[in-house]
């Protein structure tokens, strides 16, 4: 038993000196206010750490090449694409994902507005849309139509035709758009 144990330890030590294990780094990521200490290879993207290591699967990966916006998270308040951001780059920054929006099991006003306007169809772009809209609303309390369109420019949606999403942002910023769904 002892022999087996030491063999395993030796193997681990051997691995630590060659191949990918050597390159792994121990980092602490602040995700939604919780600190996660993880060991990660430099080649891992933020989205993989969020979904696979931390287990927050609300963030969706779609194109994985920075062309669709589904994986948008907030990094120190900026909307960024977690599929083309290295996890090791995010140490010391505040990361917020879609799970941060609902508090105590209750959807926030923006999420409710998305439901009220039918701004969710297949739902795959929704987490990214919500995070981009959150960043927009933190910059502009009452964004204009042009600002909303520009703010959501980096998020592609194949279902809704965008109008319902734009309406949801107008509704939540109290600009005279009423809920269409009961």
């Amino acid at each position: 038993m002892n022999h087996l144990h030491s063999q395993a330890a030796e193997d681990a030590a051997g691995q630590a000196h060659n191949g990918s294990k050597r390159r792994s780094r121990c980092i602490a990521l602040n995700i939604n206010g919780e600190l996660h200490e993880i060991t990660v290879q430099p080649r891992k993207m933020l989205i993989e750490v969020i979904r696979e290591t931390v287990g927050l699967t609300g963030t969706k990966g779609s194109c994985l090449s920075g062309t669709c916006g589904a994986c948008t998270v907030l990094l120190s308040g900026r909307p960024v694409l977690s599929c083309i951001t290295l996890a090791v780059e995010c140490e010391g920054k505040e990361i917020r994902t879609v799970e941060d929006l609902a508090q105590g099991g209750k959807l926030n006003a923006l999420q409710e507005a998305f439901l009220d306007q039918g701004a969710v169809q297949c739902g795959f772009c929704t987490p990214g849309m919500l995070m981009s809209a959150t960043a927009l609303l933190e910059r502009h309390e009452k964004p204009s139509l042009a600002q909303i369109k520009k703010g959501l420019e980096g998020n592609l949606c194949r279902c809704t035709g965008y109008n319902a999403i734009v309406d949801a942002v107008l509704q939540v910023s109290d600009q005279g758009v009423l809920p269409v769904m009961k």
Binding site: V80, L81, I84
Partner: peptide
């Protein structure tokens, strides 16, 4: 350039 998220990075 690109979209908003691209320009933020």
């Amino acid at each position: 350039v690109g979209g908003n998220q691209i320009r933020q990075s």
